[in-house]
Nucleic acid binder design. Structure first.
Lengths: 155, 155
DNA sequence: ATTGAAATGTAGGAAAC
DNA sequence: GTTTCCTACATTTCAAT
């Protein structure tokens, strides 16, 4: 198989591992009617070539005391490369910030922020986020309930 | 150890597994200066008690042809339990919708939508999302770049 | 690229301290 | 909680196709 294309078996393996990476090679091989060695070889390649970035444990956020998730829309004073990249660099250093995306539209960034509760969020907001330079507005929305939460891409 | 509290070792294990769940018990044991049997027992308990929900592979979304991520804010006509839960149930069935959260604020839901490109998003929007009943407005924002993207909670 | 078989390593359980 | 021992799997390599 060449280097730049995935075949049907590769996609099936990726689909399975996205849902459950604790599957053994044997289980995957059985599922796909392939040998264990083949599955092993494929997965090794998929990791080497960067299709699989990493294998992680997903935790129950409420059990680990992250009861409050906020999405915050941030607007900056200006959009010079300097201002944008300083903001990105600084905000990424806050552990509460799980995700930071630069966006199209009327604001500049979406942040996903995980804290234990509203007090902790407030503390983060006043003492960390609002101290960053060049912020014009921050508008925050809070998760009431999760109807769906999936890390698997539809492939 | 009792059932309802995690000690420092448990938290360390969770921290490690959130970052890299392909670590072996042996590697974790070495890192924490514990025996393999202890680590094994702890992880078993952490899974049984639901702290670890699952182990998954995270893929490179651009390599698997999901070049466009949208966040969509959805507002519904009314907020009866019936309307809310019908929307949640229907929207969760679309594979493009990776996440759906009910939110505080001026709109009702945030969706995270993964598609290959703007054409595919448009198709999803016109032929799937906009066909659901009781939707008043949908406002969409598109990811330009990812400054940070982490599934690990700050614990 | 795929396979079965062989070698090595890890998981998972149990016993004694 | 640790150590040791044990068995059953799982991973990894390899020669052959």
């Amino acid at each position: 198989m060449n280097n730049s294309e995935l075949d049907a078996t590769d996609w099936q393996i990726l689909r399975l591992l996205q849902k459950d990476a604790s599957l053994t090679n044997k289980e995957i091989a059985f599922e796909l009617n392939r040998s264990v060695a083949t599955v092993h070889e494929r997965i090794k390649r998929l990791k080497e070539e960067g299709y699989v970035k990493k294998i992680v444990a997903l935790l129950d956020r409420k059990k680990v005391n992250k009861g409050l998730i906020a999405f915050s829309h941030v607007q900056l004073h200006d959009h010079t490369a300097q201002t944008l990249s300083t903001f990105e660099k600084e905000v990424a250093r806050f552990p509460e910030v799980m995700e930071c995306f630069q966006m199209t539209g009327t604001f500049d960034f979406i942040l996903r922020i995980a804290t234990s509760d509203m007090d902790a969020y407030h503390d983060f907001y006043r003492n960390k986020l609002a101290n960053l330079p060049n912020i014009t507005t921050v508008q925050s929305f809070f998760v009431l309930s999760e109807a769906k939460s999936d890390t698997a891409y539809p492939i």
